[in-house]
Design a protein around this nucleic acid. Sequence first.
RNA 1: GGGGAAGUGGCGAAACCGGAAGACGCAUCGGACUUAAAAUCCGAAGGGCGCAAGCCCGUGGGGGUUCGAGUCCCCCCUUCCCCA
Length: 896
Amino acid sequence: MLACSFPARTLRGSIGLRLEPRPPLKNTYEPSEIEPRWQRHWEERGLFRAMNPGEEGFDPRQPKFYVLDMFPYPSGAGLHVGHPIGYIGSDIVARRKRMEGCNVLHPMGYDAFGLPAEQYAIQTGQHPAETTRKNIATYRRQFKALGLSFDWSRELATSEPEYYRWTQWIFARLFDLGLAYQSEVPVWWCEELKTVLANEEVINGRSERGGHPCVKRPLKQWMLKITAYAERLLADLDGLDWPEHVKTMQREWIGRSEGAEVEFAVEGAKEKLAVFTTRPDTLYGATFLVLAPEHPLVAKLTSAAKRAEVEAYVRAAGAKSDLERTDLAKEKSGVFLGAWARNPAREAGESGARIPIWIADYVLAQYGTGAIMAVPGQDERDWEFAERFELPIVRTVQPPEGFDGKAYVGDGPAIASPRWDGKRIDEAKRAALAWLESSGQGRAKVTYKLRDWLFSRQRYWGEPFPVLHHADGKTTRVPDELLPVELPAMKDFTPSANGSPPLARAKEWLETRDPVSGKPVRRDTDTMPGWAGSCWYYLRFMDPKNDQAPFAAEAQRYWGSVDLYVGGVEHAVLHLLYARFWHKVLYDLKLVSTKEPFQRLFNQGLLTAFAYKDSTGRLLPEDEVIVLSDVEKDEQGDLKKTPTNFIDKHGKPVERVIAKMSKSLKNVVNPDDVVKEYGVDTFRVYEMFMGPLGESKPWNPRDVAGSRRFLDRLWRLLVDEESESPLRADLLRESATVPAGDTLALERALNKTLARIEDSFQQFNFNTAIAAMMEFVNEGTKRRAALTRSQAERFLCALAPFAPHLAEELWARLGHAESITRAAWPKADPAYLVEDEVELAVQVNGKLRARIRAPKDAQRERLEELGRAAVSEHLSGKTVKKVVVVPGRLVNFVGD
RNA sequence: GGGGAAGUGGCGAAACCGGAAGACGCAUCGGACUUAAAAUCCGAAGGGCGCAAGCCCGUGGGGGUUCGAGUCCCCCCUUCCCCA
């Protein structure tokens, strides 16, 4: 029996109900009074506290459930109505799981380090610590106002020393394992701004702000060897319950490709040139080599005559982005180095053995070996390059008859390749590899598009690196017990004019002594990127106050992986890949017990808004648009529906379109305003009612009222606004009898509703759950006298995750002293889901012609008979060739 | 450029396995209540033709499979999102 359906408790009289907290005497639905009161109630009693093993109140019989939101970056603007969609969705799951008897971990925190906070601080002249504190306070207030059932005792911010101490501690583990190293890598440098810029801050070789020219230049950076985990990051995707497209994105980002590394001897040089190719079978067709302009051997191989030209080209390539360089549509460019190599498939002196070495910017230094063998016969870009510079082209795969294209990339028998002629690609590859290996000129190799993770930034607002640089050039790490290395308080944290990081100016902090040897050492002046703190916060939530370790092993073993992780698809690659990487390192260190951090991932859809486009295509702010009625009278004075019309202030028609919420379009809605006008429960219900959680949909201000009306109707269904009684009198009685008449109809309606709510949890299309609840309330309003106490209670329990404040209030008015938070989740009773008599469609040639009613278990023959009678007119003069009967659905007569 | 998701009334949407298209809500219209309005309650409503019973059309466009297609297959168009 369901605990919430028939409470085994005698009720006090209607006057003597002790309600806690006590509602006022006014008897209309007043969210502004009800909601803060219940929020205080939850907070005071710690109803959403999750207990760890060993804590008082921990119940080992409860299954655990960890539901996590991607924590927000606390920006100065606060939340707009788009942010809470995911939070409300996950909150509904968390609340429902609690009602199912789970120990639910549902925490919230802030991803508080990072570039935007620093930029905002520089602009406003405030310290990032200050703006971050203020922004967090705003977020916290807004979260609490939304009635989200977070365990606030676990709140954290990645910029707090108590937190980043352990971020540094994990970095120290990476350092010890050799997974963190320093390296000269090309980064975007803007001379005008005197700073290093992130990839996304550079557009077409110019800074996003100001449009100043930028170049790539090598700088010493911290790198994390994520490539060492490429294979496992790829393989373990298979076991995850993630959207398939997110897994695909990760697979493509990792970009595994199998092929061969082939060595080419260079004329007049000891060094051999190693190239990576996925097509070793086309080796005979390699008619030239192409190096990336940054390839380390470029300077050495360039002939004196070509030096000036080569150097100019290398400089120009440095100013381009990878995208510009590899764009297939662009005209190929390149320069001959004046050097020659030998194709290892051919003997020296043999025709085609001597091949020229070029550089071209379509070859990237970071991929493979930074050098390719160009096979124009089987590669489109190489073909284009060969045509442009008049280099030889040799086909080594026989194109099909009638092929008149240029490069042929399809399958076919090998030709002009004596060692594997006639073999198709797969086999030819194997043969080529075997020959390369046996002759010592190459080997099988797997490469990944994934590169090591550039892990440092020359900025202030991030985690300092817990390392010490010694006079002899050695780098050691700060001992664990001296962590955290705190970020020094600095008044001026803008980038320096010479491009050195702000921390280089914190002299007292910078110059220190090695705790081991006592010798003077320097700290590192870079900080970690914004991704660092978010790589492990889900683990800290398991044990957030621990000052001996990042988290206790026991706590981690208990909570395991995140059971449901909800957030935006924009983190599909980087955040999720980085966090998985750290998790696997911790797994190898036996610090965590699971291989993967997030078992199930769900991406909520984007919230859009309406915007208006005029005839020139310009988007107009909402307040410059006038909405005309969508009903017009025609000449006869009859009403005629037309598309809703919108005009601008000059009376010109504009078109309504869907756009992102943005300040400039003035279509940003603040949840505070919605809550003030309608209440939180209405806000929550509306956000879920708009459409499936996973889909993007527009906020329509004039639709919100409908959700409020639903809650109003529910209120009036249970509460008589005219009377002072907290509840309608008939609901104070228990109704133990078997439902009949209208009560039976309501019982069926209720169970149907419960079943539909249950379904909605599969795909998180809570809009259908709310539609079902609306139908039940409408049904209940029509048959109010028949509604029983038990039905009201089960309905409120199902409503509780969606509109928790109203559900609590009515639950209390029904006489419950305990919060609905832990009431039992109501399940549909299948016995009430089937009707005795069903309606069927009767079709003739697939067209609906009549409807019949029949007992649900009527025989096919009987259905056909009933159907035939119902459509006899349509069948006269026709011969029925076939009758399709689908019991419970339809009868279809197929004639001529 | 690559990848992904999606196109259904005036609007947000629903339709679980191929079986009654448009549930639920918004906006709209009509009625009841009211001195009046708001609120509330009851009702109408995809488009077209018709006095009506009813008939025809209809899920971005075109083709196909099927007794039957919003749903499956092929081609095309459009929009949005992500990555670069």
